[in-house]
Nucleic acid binder design. Structure first.
Length: 465
RNA sequence: GGCCGAGUGGCAGAGUGGCUAUGCAGCGGAUUGCAAAUCCGUGGACCUCGGUUCGACUCCGGGCUCGGCCUCCA
């Protein structure tokens, strides 16, 4: 039975979908004005695993996963102006890059990927309803604001109350706002800004309303899970609740999930601090699966400290798994035994991937134990390992290929595969003749190329370090 | 200032009111022409002070430290 930590109640709760035939999840995706950094990768990976696990439980066709793209906002407009390009050229480019990064990280595409700019009608109609119902007001500067005082439960998600917020208010007083806590739903366009027509004049949506509009459009007024990074809890998600529930009068979302930050030197990795690594930068030095493993090695709600040392460690761990899988026949199986039970128990406990990985590690050891004297058992265990790891989106590559490609992407020495095989044959002839001088000469030659030879009764394997 | 979260062995990172996490690294052994890989064994931890308890790293309270949100941010 799956339990999920619900930010709304601050408790782990048994997850019961509104409709098990149609489990619905919405995750706040990227604002596309720059490359994805490791923090974005974490959201993608964390909720990719949630998606995979929900599919596992309810069936792939019974899960509807929506991850939006925010393709209009201040940062986008500013960046496009800096570059001297049309904002949509900028966003198209970064959407493309984001998809490439996601694919590299083995992220399943969501069922729907709505964009703010294609949901203007829904956005405007939602704002309209909010104004009609008295939750929002049009200011005389052309902006439309949400009147926070009109939404009684405001602050429930972030554990704040309006009094606290006012006490510590650092919120700038905006000309048109009645109250500093009010937030903008519709922004009047300045000259030369991208804009859409609306009852309040030309303008564009505020940051929060698009997610309310898109999630409602794709998933209905009331759905199961809404996710995103910790920093979205307030104000973004808080405001989404105020908007959506203000419009529908129904409960918006049952379970709110937020993943922890990636940190560098104990500080949040963020664009504003400038201390971020892009996915692309890291992929120049590590293969994508290493990043995935590194992220999944800790619980999604914990802080995740970035360091090369950790990535090296993840790399070593993956090599260990693939070494165990190497040469074993993997087949589709259903019977997963106690490994499966323990793995699923870990996943059921609020997606405890760290503990699930501990089960994989034991499988790896048991495979290695069995591989010499019980080949069938080893193969069976290998199948279990690959099947379970599939739920985490790892260990799906061909083991031989993974090991021969080595730890660093794109690194290949002067020796081609055929040449390597040839030299190995020569060396094995020398070994049969017990010509150790020649045999070691060839081994040294490989070492210079960063290739490690492994002799065994069954022959000689090689891999790149 | 308000609110939230965290503090575990060399590093990373789970978990539990009494019983092995796990990975990487270390040490000892087995194996090996030499290696590599693997296996076996092994040391090492629960911020601090009180309280509850037969017993707390685990529950409660105070303190200290760190991080986050309160303004754009995954």
């Amino acid at each position: 039975m799956l339990k999920i930590y619900n930010n709304l109640t601050r408790k782990k709760e048994l997850f019961t979908p509104i409709n098990p035939e149609n489990v619905r999840m919405y995750v706040c995706g990227m604002t596309v004005y720059d490359l994805c950094h490791l923090g974005h990768a974490r959201v993608l990976v964390a909720f990719d695993v949630v998606y995979r696990y929900l599919q596992h439980i309810y069936g792939a066709e019974h899960v509807n996963y929506v991850r939006n793209i925010t393709d209009i906002d201040d940062k986008i407009i500013n960046r496009a102006n800096e570059n001297g390009e049309v904002f949509s050229d900028l966003t198209e480019r970064f959407i493309k890059y984001m998809h490439q990064d996601a694919e590299a990280l083995n992220i399943l595409p969501p069922n729907q990927e709505p964009r703010a700019t294609t949901h203007m009608a829904g956005i405007i109609s939602m704002i309209n309803t909010l104004v009609e119902k008295g939750f929002a007001y049009a200011a005389n500067n052309g902006d439309v604001y949400y009147d926070v005082s009109q939404f009684e439960p405001y602050g429930q998600l972030s554990g704040k109350n309006i009094g606290d917020l006012q006490a510590g208010a650092r919120v700038e007083v905006d000309e048109g706002k009645d109250d500093p806590l009010d937030f903008v739903l519709w922004k009047a366009a300045k000259p030369d800004e991208p804009h859409w027509d609306s009852p309040w004049g030309k303008g564009r949506p505020g940051w929060h309303i698009e997610c309310s509009a898109m999630s409602t459009h794709c998933l209905g007024n009331h759905f199961d899970i809404h996710g995103g990074g910790m920093d979205l809890q307030f104000p973004h998600h808080e405001n989404e609740i105020a908007q959506s529930e203000g419009v529908s009068g129904e409960k918006f979302v049952n379970v709110w999930m937020h993943n922890g930050f990636v940190r560098i030197d104990n500080e949040k990795m963020s664009k504003s601090l400038g201390n971020f690594f892009t996915v692309r930068e890291i992929l120049e030095r590590y293969r994508p699966e290493v990043i995935r493993y590194f992220i999944l090695n800790s619980h999604y709600r914990s802080p995740l400290n970035y360091s090369d040392k950790q990535l090296d460690s993840a790399q070593a761990a993956l090599e260990g798994y693939y070494t165990a899988l190497r040469g074993l026949k993997v087949s589709q199986i259903e019977e997963l035994g106690r490994y499966g039970e323990r793995f699923y128990a870990a996943m059921d406990d609020d997606f405890n991937t760290a503990e699930a990985i501990a089960v994989l590690a034991e499988l790896r050891r048991d495979i290695n134990q069995a591989r010499n004297d019980d080949r069938n058992r080893a193969s069976h265990l290998a199948s279990v390992l690959v099947k379970l790891a599939g739920l985490l989106g790892i260990l799906q590559d061909d083991a031989e290929l993974f090991l021969q490609q080595g730890g660093r992407p794109g690194v290949s020495g002067d020796l081609g595969d055929a040449e390597i095989e040839n030299l190995i044959r020569q060396r094995n002839v020398a070994r049969q003749e017990k010509n150790w001088t020649e045999s070691d000469r060839i081994r040294d030659l490989f070492v210079k190329e960063g290739i490690v030879l492994e002799d065994s009764a069954k022959g000689t394997c090689w891999r790149r370090e």
